[in-house]
Each structure stands twice: as structure tokens, then as C-alpha cells.
């Protein structure tokens, strides 16, 4: 029996390539060129399985992949996949949950401390030779310990953040989620609040919802208005969960003291975005899961899911809508 044909459409560690090659007739794309439908359509014509990161899987692409059985996302989020279109053509979609929770939670804490204590701003300040003797009170930041953290979206990453905040920094942790998580409340000593109450009480707001039709612009002008004067917004989930224009206004007016943002409505962030000139906003290039260890683990997870589907027809990592 011949091996199924597979395409790897994102750079992955060599061992992962070898693993897939053992099970599949594999094509690895040329990553010196940008990866999009135009550049790859001739390469994916026979593909039965694909390992992807961020590549848009929609009718347009699927028209070029008549044999495709599975698209495996290296990420947890899969809003790049048109799940309905895939369903119609019986193409399965997998993702890689569980692998990156701790790495993303580390980064969320990093953004929080960085915004509150202004580390990136003050690192640049020092490197530019601006540190001179005298009154330093303009460089003071805000305490993280014992302040109130509001988490919107309490999944595995939310729990990992709550653990750090509560046990490490003795923060008061409150959360909002579609469904209450009583076991987590008990284990971590955190409290459920309706969303508007949470917004009014949090010193730091962390959004951790997946991006869906319901969560797009979940945080807009009305929600930001409800927040405390001098509070902070941290987003490392998906940019469109926050109305960026409203966020920029709240930062410009001084309503918010600062923000830590790893994700944006449009990525890469356009060069004329007002966020890029704000010293009180920490901006990073969608890198919350970006450690070598975790990216290797994610690539392994996606490759295994793809091979599993090709060999057995199913995988535990098939996205919930298709189960």
C-alpha cells in the first residue's frame, strides 16, 4: 500500500519532518518564499494531509485540494479554518490544545509585570542614556502583588494564569466565563463575577477567550468605560476580541494606565498604528507561545494528529465542532 501524501506548510523541527516522512509521502514547502494560496497551490494538489500554521483553509483553497482529508493546525486557535466549508467537503480539522498553556501563561504574567512596572520602556530609557541623577518619581510603576486580576475566559490557560497570580503574587483573582467552573474556584480560591462587575473591579484585565462570532469585539467602548481609572488591559488571545480603536481611545484619554498586547486586529501590526508610539503600551509580535520547547511540542502534536487521521480516520485533537 502506498503512503498517503502530506505537505508541511510551516517550518518544523527536523525530527518532526523525519517522523512524518516515515508515515507519509511528504513534501516540505520552500519557506524562503511567503506561504499563501498563490505560491503553494501547485504543491498541494495531491495532498491528503497538511500541517499548517495560520494558513487560511477555505473554499478557495479547498478547490485546489480535492484529495485533502485533514488540515492539522500547529496552534490551539483555528479561526484560520472555515470549519463549515471543511465539513461540507468532509475535510477534518485538528488543533493542538494543552501543549502551550504554561508557556502562554508565563508570557501573560510577563506582559502584566512589564506594563505595570514599565520594564521595556525603562530598559529603552536606560539604553538611550537618559538615566541621570535626580528625582525618579516619574519612572514609578504600579504594584502587581495583592492587586485584583480579572480574567475573561477561564480555560486551561486561564487556570495557569490564575495559579501564578494567586499562589505566586497573592493577587485577588476574579473571572468570567460562559459557564462557571466550581472545581477551579475551589482549587485556586478564585471568584466568579458577571462580566460588568469584573470590569469594574479589576486592576488588570486579561482576555483569554477564543475568537468566535460572539467574542469578536467583546471588549469595546462600553466595557472599557466600565473599567477603573488607571487599570491595565492584557491581551494574548486574539486581537479582534478587543475593539482596537476603542482601546486606543481609552489609552489616549488616560483612562487606562497601560496595556500589554501580543495580538492585534491586524497582524503584523500596521506601521501607522497609534499603539506603536505609546510608551505605556508593551507590544510584542504574537509570540506568547513562542519558545523553542513549546513550538517543537506543538509541531509534534500537529504532525501526530495528521498521521493519526490519515492512518485511522480519527484523532483526539479534531476540533470540537467536528466531533
Amino acid at each position: 500500500m502506498s503512503k498517503p501524501k502530506a505537505v508541511i506548510a510551516y517550518p518544523v523541527p527536523e525530527e518532526v519532518v523525519e517522523f512524518v516522512r516515515e508515515h507519509c509521502d511528504l513534501k516540505v514547502l520552500d519557506f524562503s518564499k511567503p506561504v499563501n494560496l498563490e505560491t503553494i497551490k501547485d504543491e498541494i494538489r495531491d495532498a491528503e494531509g497538511m500541517v499548517i500554521l495560520g494558513l487560511r483553509i477555505d473554499d478557495q483553497l479547498l478547490d485546489h485540494t480535492p484529495k485533502l482529508k485533514v488540515a492539522s493546525n500547529i496552534t490551539v486557535g483555528y479561526n484560520n479554518c472555515d470549519v463549515e466549508a471543511m465539513k461540507k467537503r468532509s475535510v477534518l480539522c485538528t488543533h493542538s490544545p494543552g501543549v502551550l498553556d504554561e508557556t502562554v501563561a508565563d508570557f501573560v504574567m510577563g506582559l502584566m509585570i512589564s506594563a505595570a512596572r514599565r520594564l521595556p520602556e525603562l530598559d529603552t530609557f536606560t539604553k538611550e542614556g537618559k538615566w541621570v541623577k535626580g528625582d525618579m518619581s516619574e519612572l514609578f510603576g504600579r504594584d502587581v502583588h495583592h492587586s485584583t486580576l480579572g480574567i475573561i475566559g477561564m480555560g486551561r490557560i486561564g487556570e495557569a494564569v490564575a495559579r501564578r497570580a494567586k499562589f505566586g503574587f497573592e493577587m485577588d483573582v476574579i473571572y468570567y466565563n460562559r459557564s462557571r467552573k466550581e472545581a477551579v474556584e475551589k482549587e485556586l480560591g478564585i471568584t466568579y463575577k458577571p462580566m460588568d462587575e469584573l470590569l469594574a473591579e479589576a486592576d488588570f484585565l486579561v482576555t483569554l477567550t477564543p475568537l468566535t462570532a460572539e467574542t469578536a469585539h467583546l471588549i469595546g467602548e462600553r466595557e472599557l468605560d466600565l473599567m477603573k481609572e488607571g487599570s491595565f488591559v492584557i491581551n494574548a488571545s486574539r486581537g479582534p476580541v478587543i475593539d482596537e480603536e476603542a482601546l486606543i481611545k481609552a489609552l489616549q484619554s488616560g483612562k487606562l494606565a497601560g496595556a500589554g498586547l501580543d495580538v492585534f486586529e491586524k497582524e503584523p501590526l500596521p506601521k501607522d498604528s497609534p499603539l506603536l508610539s505609546m510608551k505605556n503600551v508593551v507590544t510584542t509580535p504574537h509570540i506568547a507561545a513562542g519558545t523553542h520547547q513549546t513550538m517543537a511540542n506543538l509541531a509534534w502534536s500537529a504532525a501526530r494528529s495528521m498521521v493519526e487521521v490519515l492512518e485511522t480516520g480519527t484523532s483526539k485533537n479534531i476540533v470540537p465542532e467536528m466531533k
Binding site: 508570557f107 510577563g110 509585570i113 512596572r117 529603552t124 502587581v144 505566586g168 508593551v282 507590544t283 509570540i287
Partner: peptide, 19 residues
């Protein structure tokens, strides 16, 4: 708090990536 900030900023390169 600041020390954890320094650890995270070094390991995850936050100031460099902010720039």
C-alpha cells in the same frame, strides 16, 4: 515582582520584542 519581571523579560525577550 520586579525580579520575576526581569526573569520573564530576559527569558522571553519582551523589551527587545517591544522595540
Amino acid at each position: 515582582d520586579l525580579i520575576l519581571g526581569l526573569i520573564l523579560n530576559s527569558a522571553r525577550r519582551i523589551p527587545e520584542l517591544n522595540r
